[in-house]
């Protein structure tokens, strides 16, 4: 794991030198400020409105960061040929994949925590406080970022940077609706199609399990601990599966 950590540190060092993170950073802070100011002039439900939009902005921006950073890792290493001196060192291909995932997860989580910090400061300025469900929402979104990072790193072993970004962003959008959409469709289709849909439903990870935004906006009490533990196990299992698939594909690949 030490070798994976060395690779992760390199991902972090490279990412903080790229402009795209700073652009997304400024963009999201600007959007949150606009939302904060707009809600200042409103009278009814201003905090709910602020929380909902801010959480949406933070979620999308941090997922875009995870996808953009993760998708370029393997293709850029191959195109720039930096992978050759690296893979000649005592570094397993599995450690390379895990390191890339770890670095992507750390960068996206760090950005998320900074955004959340700003969000919480703005929340305090509106006289609101940090609720238990908000803490749980933050934790689950970190898990979601780690899961998406594993999907992106896995896909980078199969496809180009641009294709990976497109597929991953699409999956992030659809992944929140997949369970509901499939259960709605099940009643209207034949046995064979229903079987295929059910299989898809079981195979693909449901990103809606990581989304507590509605509950946060409406001030629900924290969800039971067993739910959080189950979702954590769910995320760990899927992350392991995606990293395993990515590693197996990368191990077979001729450099």
């Amino acid at each position: 794991m030490r070798a994976a950590w060395i690779i992760a540190k390199n991902v972090i060092e490279e990412s903080i030198r790229k402009k795209e993170i700073y652009v997304l950073f400024i963009l999201s802070i600007a959007m949150m400020s606009v939302v904060a100011m707009a809600s200042f002039f409103s009278l009814t439900g201003l905090v709910k409105y602020f929380i909902e939009l801010s959480f949406l902005i933070i979620t999308y921006i941090t997922v875009i960061i995870a996808v953009v950073v993760g998708a370029r890792q393997l293709p850029v290493e191959l195109n720039s040929r930096t992978i050759y001196p690296l893979m000649a060192k005592p570094l397993k291909r599995s450690e390379f994949i895990i390191g890339k995932w770890l670095g992507t997860s750390i960068i996206s989580t760090f950005c998320f925590l900074v955004f959340e910090g700003i969000f919480i400061i703005l929340l305090f300025s509106k006289g609101s406080s940090v609720s238990g469900i908000l803490i749980q929402g933050i934790f689950l979104h970190i898990l979601q970022l780690m899961l998406i990072s594993s999907i992106v790193i896995c896909l980078s072993a199969f496809m180009t940077n641009a294709a990976n970004v497109t597929v991953s962003i699409l999956y992030f959008i659809l992944g929140h609706w997949i369970g509901k959409a499939i259960s709605d469709m099940l009643d209207k289709c034949g046995t064979f199609l229903a079987w295929i849909l059910k299989s898809i439903n079981y195979i693909l990870p449901h990103l809606d399990y990581f989304d507590l935004s509605k509950k946060i906006v409406h001030g629900w009490p924290p969800v039971p601990a067993w739910v959080i533990i189950t979702v954590t196990i769910y995320a760990v299992v899927y992350i392991s599966i995606f990293l395993l698939i990515g590693t197996l594909k990368f191990q077979r690949r001729q450099l």
Binding site: N10, R81, P85
Partner: peptide, 21 residues
Amino acid sequence: SIRNRFRIGYLPEIAYYYPFL
């Protein structure tokens, strides 16, 4: 093998290294 890589040094034909380092 990983064990061998501890004992080997390699210079690629076209050497590119992380430009930011």
